[in-house]
Computed example of a mutant assay.
Amino acid sequence: MSGLSTIGFDADDTLWQNETFFRLTEQRFTELLSEHGAHEVISAKLLEAERRNLRFYGFGVKGFTLSMIETAVEVTNGQVSASVIGEILGFGRQMLQNPVETLPGARETLDQLAGRYRILLITKGDLFDQERKLAQSGLGDYFSAVEIVSDKTPDTYRRIFSRHGDGPERAMMVGNSLKSDIVPAIRAGSWGVYVPHELTWVLEHEEAPEAEPRFRRIASLGALPGLLAQMT
């Protein structure tokens, strides 16, 4: 750990709230279509649509909105009204205007580490929306570089940590998604620090790599400086 020079941070549900807005919107969506099925049934069909559409629309609000429309067409057997589609589009626009709520300890942690390490933001999602959230968060000045990517793979981390740091072996990735933030970063040769969030999208679930020597878990982001102090 004495050679650690670069720390990458995930954005959504690591530095600020995100999944909460998706869950609330999903609830509104199932209520809108309640005459066509129970909440659990419509939610399951929405998840199937999201899974199918990831390779076409990617991650983020716009893909979620298109998946809601597709699900509405499916559960109504093609009879969904223009007014309902209009409401769904309104749900999506509202999500793109939601205020940014940073998570406890986010600013304080970045403030402690920014002078000691090269700090990066590495996030998936829609370019415009992620740029908006970063600007509204007030955290932008902490980052040496911001990478908004279509997906997070070992190659993604190798490329980013080589471009903006001293290679993956001297880098660490911090985030709430085992599937996107932790496992691929470790496979790239980096450290992975898992910070669980109470709400994590089911498509981001994966088994924790407990046996990996470069895996760590902390209860909250505020514990990261202490963990780094113990490891160096």
Results as ranks from 00 to 15, higher is better:
residue 102 T to W: 01
residue 79 Q to N: 11
residue 97 Q to C: 10
residue 86 G to F: 04
residue 98 N to F: 00
residue 77 N to E: 08
residue 87 E to H: 08
residue 88 I to K: 02
residue 92 G to D: 11
residue 95 M to Q: 07
residue 96 L to S: 14
residue 105 G to N: 11
residue 103 L to P: 03
residue 88 I to F: 04
residue 82 A to T: 15
residue 89 L to H: 08
residue 80 V to M: 10
residue 79 Q to S: 14
residue 92 G to C: 14
residue 99 P to I: 04
residue 97 Q to Y: 00
residue 94 Q to V: 13
residue 99 P to R: 01
residue 80 V to C: 15
residue 87 E to P: 07
residue 82 A to P: 04
residue 101 E to P: 03
residue 105 G to S: 13
residue 96 L to A: 15
residue 102 T to G: 09
residue 90 G to N: 11
residue 90 G to A: 11
residue 86 G to A: 14
residue 104 P to E: 06
residue 106 A to P: 01
residue 78 G to M: 09
residue 83 S to M: 13
residue 83 S to V: 13
residue 87 E to T: 12
residue 106 A to Y: 01
residue 95 M to W: 00
residue 104 P to Y: 01
residue 83 S to D: 15
residue 78 G to A: 09
residue 92 G to V: 13
residue 77 N to F: 02
residue 77 N to T: 03
residue 91 F to L: 10
residue 84 V to T: 11
residue 89 L to V: 08
residue 79 Q to E: 15
residue 88 I to C: 06
residue 87 E to V: 13
residue 90 G to Q: 05
residue 90 G to W: 01
residue 82 A to I: 14
residue 79 Q to I: 12
residue 84 V to K: 01
residue 98 N to H: 03
residue 101 E to K: 01
residue 102 T to V: 09
residue 80 V to Y: 11
residue 98 N to L: 02
residue 93 R to H: 14
residue 90 G to L: 10
residue 82 A to E: 14
residue 106 A to H: 02
residue 78 G to S: 05
residue 97 Q to G: 10
residue 104 P to W: 00
residue 86 G to D: 13
residue 100 V to G: 04
residue 95 M to Y: 02
residue 100 V to K: 00
residue 99 P to D: 09
residue 102 T to Y: 00
residue 96 L to K: 08
residue 102 T to M: 05
residue 105 G to H: 03
residue 86 G to H: 05
residue 101 E to C: 10
residue 89 L to A: 09
residue 103 L to S: 05
residue 82 A to F: 12
residue 77 N to H: 05
residue 77 N to K: 03
residue 84 V to E: 11
residue 97 Q to M: 10
residue 91 F to D: 12
residue 93 R to M: 14
residue 90 G to M: 08
residue 94 Q to M: 10
residue 84 V to P: 01
residue 82 A to S: 15
residue 88 I to Q: 04
residue 98 N to S: 13
